[in-house]
């Protein structure tokens, strides 16, 4: 439905358009671009992995076949290992600390860190903090021993589960519900909105509020495409991106709180940790940092720590 002469912006993502935080943001971005930039640019959104999945979309972007995508941050570890910082357990104490780090010089520099590889980060989009669930109560790290956990494909996350004495299993996201229900795997980690959206709470003993990690997305485009834009068009586009990002990120805390409440309302069991229990989880998982500290860089870790303190 794009008109002749408009710059076509294809945005391929993997969630729905109206419930998932990323999908909502993408829809909002498209609406604003299509009204405010009418005649200059036109955005087509391809949701639900119909065009590309997260593994393929970045390849397609470098090829020039798609212009926007928002994969989760761990997908960028292939481009620069700095992004492993977002997968390290207990690196950020809450979503405000994540936000502060992303806004810091270190966080902003990471947006530009993949230019050499042809990608330009535009904005961080929040999903939220990760929680853990299994088919038995998880209160201490020893509870996770011997369990099989589905993880996203990432060395850091695999190492994290091994640090708990669990077995990491790779598995397509669409198979996770069935695998949890049938017991092919015992547990998983995810944000409240994913746990509610994919109904994982129905097939788990309960969800433990660990807040041990984060799932955020990077809105990304290709350097070559961005450079090819007329400067006025580019500025207007980037302004809209910034405004949509701010508006949606502000909502993310509320979205996750609502998802958590919905889990409880639907009969899901939510367990919170005492400070001592939480300390035990930190103690069990933090050794993972050593293994990846060099990849992430000391300055980035320092910036993350100061973000944790700033947001006290």
């Amino acid at each position: 439905q794009c008109d002749e002469g408009e710059t076509v912006i294809k945005f391929s993502h993997v969630t729905n358009t109206d419930k998932h935080p990323k999908g909502i943001a993408a829809t909002l971005l498209a609406e604003r671009v299509n009204t405010e930039m009418n005649g200059k640019a036109c955005m087509e959104v391809f949701p639900n992995s119909t065009l590309y999945d997260d593994n393929k979309v970045l390849e397609a972007m470098l090829q020039g076949d798609v212009q926007l995508a928002a994969p989760s941050l761990s997908k960028f570890e292939k481009f620069t290992k700095q992004f492993r910082i977002f997968d390290l357990p207990f690196m950020f104490k809450d979503i405000n600390a994540v936000e502060a780090f992303q806004a810091s010089d270190a966080g902003q520099a990471m947006l530009d860190s993949m230019q050499r590889r042809g990608l330009q980060g535009l904005a961080y989009w929040h999903n939220g903090m990760k929680q853990m669930s299994a088919n038995k109560p998880l209160l201490l790290p020893t509870d996770a021993q011997g369990l099989k956990f589905r993880v996203q494909s990432s060395d850091v996350l695999a190492a994290q589960m091994e640090a708990l004495g669990g077995t990491p299993q790779a598995m397509a996201f669409s198979e996770v519900y069935g695998a949890l229900q049938q017991g092919v795997v015992d547990g998983q980690e995810n944000t409240w909105s994913n746990i509610y959206g994919k109904k994982f709470f129905e097939v788990q003993d309960g969800i433990t509020e660990t807040n041990h990690g984060i799932i955020d997305y990077l809105l990304v485009t290709s350097v070559d495409w961005l450079d090819s834009l007329d400067p006025a068009v580019r500025d207007q586009f980037l302004t809209i991106v910034a405004e949509v990002t701010e508006a949606r990120n502000k909502e993310s805390t509320a979205v996750n709180a609502a998802a958590k409440q919905s889990v409880i309302d639907a009969g899901g069991v939510v367990r919170t940790l005492t400070p001592e229990q939480r300390a035990a989880w930190v103690k069990a998982m933090k050794p993972v940092w050593d293994k990846f500290a060099d990849d992430v860089g000391a300055d980035n870790i320092a910036a993350a720590q100061s973000a944790n303190q700033m947001t006290n």
């Binding site: 099989k148 695999a158 077995t167 299993q169 790779a170």
Partner: peptide, 14 residues
Amino acid sequence: ARYILNTGILWGLE
């Protein structure tokens, strides 16, 4: 591996 050795072959699927 999963049932007898209690590990997973993470690269197996790929």
